[in-house]
Amino acid sequence: MSEYSTEYVTVFHTVGEVRAWRSKQQQQGNTVGFVPTMGALHAGHLALATAAARACSSVILSIFVNPAQFAPHEDLAQYPRTLRSDIEKLTPLAQTTHCVVFAPSVAEMYPRGITTDRTQQRGTFVEVLGLSEMLEGGSRPHFFRGVATVVSKLFLIVMPEMAFFGQKDVQQCCVLRAMVGDMHFPIKLEVVPTVRGEDGLALSSRNVYLTEEQRKRAPAFYRGMCKARELFDSGVVGRDALITAVAAEAASEGLEIEYIRLSDPDTLEEVDSVTSAGAILSGAWRMGTTRLIDNTLIGFEF
């Protein structure tokens, strides 16, 4: 048993341990819900675990900071690693639900090694072409290759009936939904609505990097999206008007906007207006050195 295991939460570190546990769940007729995370758990992650507990007999969370999602200049070394406190946060749920954690080492997940320099990477990787190049892929071309690769590995290790992801990472949800279909994974992917603070800011592990002053200004992007949704509800469907509503509110608090897009929910290509298929209104902005993302769904639901 791992030193991190507690009375209520068992922590596994190897693929063999997880597969033995999964075999036991199958023998007992238990369905398994899976929540992949990079740790530093907050209420958003716990909402995913709670949704998994409602839908499945057993819940497994992975806690793994995936190097393949980071470029050499990004904050891999600084990314918070808080396994012990993460286990404590899961305890209330684990008191009523069978809940375990898979916290593998980098060597366990990447037996041939892994570097953040994509040109030096060796081994097997998964790419979802087309969707991965949109939106976040413009500034982080390595990111969704890393996501698709590690989630594919985790799916094959855990073999869950259902997997749960947060809407805040909407492009990730679209990429993985396509991957599940393309690769014929026998897994139902569930998208859980974004969990927000009282001021509307989406919960994120990166919020801890915000200063008190930045934290007060950051919700302006969400307020702008709310105004855009109000416009849509009043009959406005044009991209320019909806994006302008977000940009104006963000500018009022001096947010450093990287992009705001109105996108087709299937292709993520930019659209001129919201059609009967709906659209995703999303964006990214910086507060000092911290980069944040958010989105809202217009005219459709996952």
Rank of each mutant, 00 (worst) to 15 (best):
57 S>V: 01
130 G>V: 00
281 L>D: 13
234 S>K: 13
56 C>H: 04
203 L>W: 08
223 R>T: 05
33 G>D: 08
111 P>K: 09
15 V>W: 00
271 V>C: 07
168 K>N: 03
46 L>V: 06
214 Q>W: 02
211 T>R: 02
152 S>V: 02
19 R>E: 15
47 A>C: 01
113 G>Y: 11
154 L>Y: 06
56 C>W: 00
8 Y>G: 03
259 Y>T: 00
49 A>R: 14
37 T>P: 05
242 L>R: 11
131 L>S: 00
47 A>I: 00
16 G>F: 07
66 N>Q: 02
84 R>S: 10
26 Q>R: 15
34 F>T: 10
3 E>P: 04
205 S>E: 10
289 T>C: 06
286 R>V: 06
197 G>Y: 14
249 E>S: 11
223 R>G: 01
220 A>P: 09
130 G>H: 02
47 A>H: 06
160 P>Q: 09
235 G>L: 06
232 F>M: 13
149 T>W: 01
138 G>R: 13
78 Q>W: 02
229 R>Q: 12
200 G>V: 08
147 V>M: 11
51 A>F: 02
239 R>P: 01
203 L>G: 00
80 P>V: 10
8 Y>S: 03
275 T>D: 12
203 L>E: 00
123 G>A: 12
98 H>I: 09
97 T>L: 01
245 A>Q: 07
195 V>Q: 12
116 T>D: 05
170 V>D: 01
26 Q>S: 14
171 Q>K: 06
11 V>H: 11
124 T>C: 08
134 M>Y: 04
292 L>S: 02
190 E>W: 14
26 Q>M: 12
85 S>A: 12
222 Y>N: 10
214 Q>E: 15
165 F>L: 09
155 F>K: 10
189 L>V: 15
1 M>I: 04
40 A>N: 06
20 A>H: 07
3 E>C: 04
118 R>P: 02
258 E>D: 15
32 V>W: 12
283 G>H: 13
30 N>V: 00
255 L>K: 07
148 A>M: 07
48 L>K: 08
109 M>A: 06
141 P>W: 02
194 T>H: 09
233 D>G: 06
268 L>F: 06
176 L>Y: 15
250 A>Q: 11
197 G>L: 06
223 R>M: 15
57 S>C: 03
212 E>L: 03
31 T>F: 10
288 G>K: 03
9 V>F: 05
7 E>K: 14
17 E>V: 04
113 G>R: 10
21 W>R: 05
49 A>W: 07
257 I>T: 08
7 E>Q: 12
245 A>P: 09
100 V>I: 08
90 L>R: 00
53 A>Q: 05
221 F>Y: 13
120 Q>W: 01
198 E>L: 08
140 R>F: 04
87 I>F: 09
42 H>N: 01
2 S>T: 11
257 I>G: 03
160 P>S: 11
65 V>W: 04
157 I>M: 08
242 L>N: 11
20 A>N: 04
255 L>D: 13
108 E>Y: 10
99 C>V: 15
57 S>E: 12
243 I>G: 00
273 S>E: 14
42 H>E: 07
223 R>P: 01
170 V>P: 03
299 G>V: 14
123 G>H: 11
219 P>K: 13
70 F>T: 08
103 A>R: 12
224 G>S: 13
58 S>N: 11
231 L>S: 03
93 L>N: 14
4 Y>G: 05
243 I>H: 02
92 P>G: 10
196 R>V: 09
265 P>H: 05
